[in-house]
Each structure stands twice: as structure tokens, then as C-alpha cells.
């Protein structure tokens, strides 16, 4: 008797769940016809961004490549010919190694490297998944529309001499003897 009661209960329970879900709102989307709506802070395809003035933000400080737990980033820095502004001559991310942990973004002092909510990176060979600078660099500021590291640093660059940065006094006069 007790068995029969359980049996009936299980069947009706299962069928009612099925019926309920048959008419419920759908979670599945018809990808790729329909795109999922991912939050902005999703950790997807990594990009390099530029300052509001359109200069490359990355200063080749090697912090992202050092913090990367899967050694996915390879950088070589160089100096710009006319003003010694350091930039990444070579910047490579191997997305076959990247685990999308976002540590590089956290480590970056210049907000250059950013994760995006794009995850569509399928490729038919491993080599295609090694992105060089031309595929990483995008011509926008990403999530941080205002930040410009060099404005706050003490080194002179084109258009900003020593003492012209944020919060800086003009350089001292080397030759003055006045108190």
C-alpha cells in the first residue's frame, strides 16, 4: 500500500514538473542567431586599449606577463624614437594557454590590458590563437574612458615636459643660489 502511494506520487510529480517547464520562459537562446547578453565585467577575449588621446596605453612594464599564471603573454618593450616613451614593440597572447583568470587586467597599472565580453574566438589551428599586437590593440579606451597613465608619471614625453604632469611643480632652477 505504502509502495503504491510512493509510486503514484513520483509519477505525478515528474509529469507536473515536465508540464510546468514546457510552458515556462526559455533560458536557452538560439545561438548564434541570437547573442547572449553578457555582463560588462565578463572575462573574455583580451584587448589592449588606448588613452583618450588615442595613444597606446601599454608601457611594456611586463607586470601582466609576470603575473600570468599560465605564461600566456610575451612582451618586448622599446622606446619611441622621438620622445623615449616606452611601448610594447611586441605583444603576444597565446589564447591556447590563457585561462581567462583576469589577473593581467588586475595587475596592469595603465589600464591597457582589459578583458571583454567577447568569447567567440574559435579557430581552426593553434597558431591562429596566438594573437599578436595587431589583433590585440583596439582603438578605444575600453572600460576606463578617462585614464591616462603618462599624465601622472614623472617622465617627460612628447607634449609633456618634466614638471608638467598632474600635481607637479615646475622643475627647480639648477643654477639658482637664492634661498
Amino acid at each position: 500500500m505504502k509502495n503504491l502511494k510512493n509510486w503514484v506520487g513520483e509519477i505525478t510529480g515528474a509529469f507536473s514538473a515536465t508540464l510546468k517547464h514546457a510552458f515556462a520562459e526559455r533560458d536557452t537562446v538560439c545561438y548564434p542567431a541570437e547573442k547572449p547578453d553578457l555582463p560588462e565585467r565578463w572575462r573574455g577575449r583580451i584587448i589592449l586599449t588606448v588613452t583618450p588621446e588615442g595613444e597606446e596605453r601599454c608601457v611594456a612594464c611586463y607586470l601582466c606577463s609576470s603575473v600570468c599564471p599560465s605564461s600566456a603573454i610575451t612582451i618586448q618593450g622599446a622606446e619611441r624614437e622621438d620622445d623615449e616613451r616606452r611601448y610594447a614593440e611586441k605583444f603576444e597572447i597565446d589564447f591556447t594557454r590563457c585561462i581567462f583568470c583576469g589577473l593581467c587586467e588586475e595587475a596592469c597599472p595603465t589600464r591597457a590590458i582589459q578583458t571583454t565580453n567577447d568569447f567567440e574566438m574559435g579557430a581552426s589551428s593553434r597558431a591562429e590563437l596566438v594573437y599578436d599586437k595587431s589583433r590585440l590593440l583596439e582603438n578605444h579606451t575600453g572600460k576606463y574612458p578617462d585614464f591616462d597613465y603618462f599624465k601622472r608619471a614623472g617622465v617627460p614625453i612628447r607634449g609633456k615636459d618634466v614638471g608638467e604632469g598632474a600635481n607637479e611643480k615646475p622643475p627647480v632652477d639648477v643654477y639658482t643660489l637664492l634661498p
Partner: peptide, 23 residues
């Protein structure tokens, strides 16, 4: 400290040594 920072001019010291006086 939120005052303004004192700055110093850099000097060119030939091909071997690089100077950034602010530091």
C-alpha cells in the same frame, strides 16, 4: 601628502647612462 611634487630636470649623460632626476 596631496601637495604638489617638486621636479628636477633630467640630464643627458651620453650613450651609457640614463638619468631621471625626479626619482
Amino acid at each position: 601628502f596631496d601637495g604638489q611634487k617638486k621636479t628636477y630636470p633630467n640630464q643627458l649623460l651620453g650613450p651609457l647612462v640614463w638619468n631621471t632626476a625626479n626619482r
